[in-house]
Write a protein that binds this DNA or RNA. Structure first.
Lengths: 159, 159
DNA sequence: TTCGCTGCAAAGGATTTGCATTCTA
DNA sequence: TAGAATGCAAATCCTTTGCAGCGAA
């Protein structure tokens, strides 16, 4: 197929934008340059960014973007399912692109450096569904976070 | 042995108080009537109460207890391990007595009525430890919440 | 008598909201 | 042109902090 990694990225980003546009149209909402810039910023940055960071990054492109717009857009993206919101401990919300159904994962947070690692364990997911089932529920979502001590010699060791 | 349930409760409560006292002494802190009242309130109420509710309940006994004291005491109890703190979604913190090592459990939250159900699944716990292990960590704590749709006919159906 | 503890009020910090204005469709 | 979206500032909400007086050991 000969597509470069860079090329694949561009295509993926276009797909996410299209997904968001579709969502907006569906709800009778409008596509604005701010919303595009914010979604771009999210794609440029890695996972687990807070609203403030998104705002700062977005303002690199358009310095007039307001905090409220960032929060409103993050909410919109979360509702659409494109973005996922997490809260680890008492901290402020962290966001990451959902990346489709095939990309589900949970988090392990290093007690030493606070770094976040992602993992996916199908067996656990199955058991979770069964637990809900047994309690008389149909599982829709779950949240699982592991807090653990680091054994990595190169752990930055700061929170 | 012929102990009534009521009698057992009283003994258990005394044990928790003793545990807290011990913790305070260990840190060179003081036992105060406010701290006792607040811990009593927690034991009187069921699980999953927020700070405000604890404050209200405590003020039934001593109306002069301040909000700050409640928060500070909840922090102290949490640090001692007697109390566990949870945050479900964007909501304020909820507290519950830990009840000892044998009492660990996770939560399922009803999407319809918001009610919280407790469960414990040893298999999942084992797998969690293994996942951490595999990533090079030693698991210390975890948090797992299932959000699910209700099938109970008597679900109150309000959030 | 010493400090830790308390209540009060004020401060904090992340997020939300009201509103006049601007802009998309 | 309608009404959705924006930026700004003010408002929320839960929680924490500063401080002068109080109280446990």
């Amino acid at each position: 197929m000969g597509f470069s990694k860079h090329q694949e990225n561009i295509e993926h980003e276009a797909k996410v934008h299209a997904e968001f546009d579709e969502y907006l149209v569906k709800l009778g909402l409008r596509q604005t340059k701010q919303r595009k810039i914010i979604l771009n910023a999210l794609m440029r940055m890695g996972a687990h960014v807070d609203a403030e960071t998104v705002a700062t990054q977005s303002r690199e492109i358009d310095s007039s973007i307001g905090t409220a717009t960032v929060y409103r857009t993050l909410a919109l993206l979360t509702q659409s399912g494109i973005l996922k919101e997490h809260q680890f401990g008492h901290d402020k919300s962290q966001f990451e692109l959902a990346g489709g159904l095939d990309d589900h994962h949970d988090h392990l947070i290093c007690n030493q450096c606070g770094k976040i690692f992602e993992f996916c364990q199908d067996e656990i997911e199955t058991l979770q569904t069964q637990v809900a089932e047994k309690l008389g529920f149909f599982l829709k979502e779950h949240r699982m976070e592991l807090f653990a001590d680091c054994r990595r010699p190169n752990c930055e060791n700061k929170k």
